[in-house]
């Protein structure tokens, strides 16, 4: 089976006077219907990997493939078109368009894609919002909603164009435990019932355990890709801390 998204030997270096390596030599494949958590300490490159898998950022080395197709040769607009069709993002903070109602926020990506008529798009948005339990909040603007509700609107929006890859960057980071669980339950349903590939970055080990598979990052490298093949992490390969 072709992975929904696959990274091959991906390295991302932020250029500058002191180049910073965000992730290095990442090899990972996410299958359709998989619910994956990326875990690791702060600064280990979890979010960076997520943005690379979501085609929001470009690798400095290696390649990202979506449904087996290499994306390295694509222009910025080509990547944007792929994101529009295949990728849905959920961020730690809701990141909704503040002037638009919950419903309109979900409709916007659909209008951009243009697969549905305006009427179909509205009906679809209503269905998605109902699915995340916001049937009675659709007309509200983000500033009239609670944090948990906003995050659920963001999830509905990430689903708008029926993408096969959902990427979430600490989606529960700004939520309490109850709302965090609600969000994770929705993700599990998307993976199990709708065969979406859901990849989420999280700090919370309890939430991570609810996923099918956990990828553990340390210092920009995968030390455990959750498929049983634990890599040995060679501590001596790290540069010595200054002053020692």
């Amino acid at each position: 089976m072709t992975p929904a998204v696959e990274a091959k030997n991906v390295t991302r270096v932020l250029p500058g006077t002191v180049p910073v390596t965000l992730v290095r030599e990442i090899d990972v494949a996410i299958m359709p219907g998989e619910f994956v958590a990326i875990t690791g300490p702060s600064g280990s490159g979890k979010s960076s990997l997520l943005y690379l898998l979501g085609l929001l950022d470009r690798p400095s080395g290696g390649a990202i493939s979506v449904h087996g197709e290499d994306t390295s040769g694509l222009s910025g607009d080509g990547l944007a078109a792929l994101r529009l069709k295949h990728v849905g993002f959920v961020f730690q903070f809701h990141f909704l368009l503040p002037e638009f109602s919950a419903l309109d926020n979900v409709v916007v990506p659909m209008r951009r894609l243009g697969r549905w008529t305006d009427k179909e798009a509205r009906e679809r948005a209503e269905r998605l919002l109902t699915e995340v339990g916001l049937a009675d909040q659709m007309r509200k603007r983000p500033d009239q909603m609670s944090g948990g509700q906003r995050q659920r609107v963001a999830i509905a929006r990430s689903m708008a164009n029926d993408p096969d890859i959902i990427l979430a960057d600490e989606p529960t980071g700004s939520l309490d435990q109850k709302n965090g669980h609600i969000v994770f339950e929705i993700f599990a349903r998307l993976a199990n019932d709708y065969r979406k590939s859901v990849i989420t970055v999280t700090h919370d080990p309890h939430l991570a355990e609810q996923t099918h598979r956990q990828i553990h990052l340390v210092d920009g490298r995968i030390v455990d890709d959750g498929n049983g093949a634990k890599r040995t992490f060679d501590e001596t390969a790290l540069p010595a801390p200054p002053g020692v």
């Binding site: 607009d77 944007a80 993002f89 916007v108 951009r112």
Partner: peptide, 16 residues
């Protein structure tokens, strides 16, 4: 700026 980032993450192209 934030909204622009959101729209781009959704798949809006630079031209949009």
């Amino acid at each position: 700026t934030r909204d622009i980032a959101i729209m781009k993450s959704m798949g809006f192209a630079e031209g949009d």
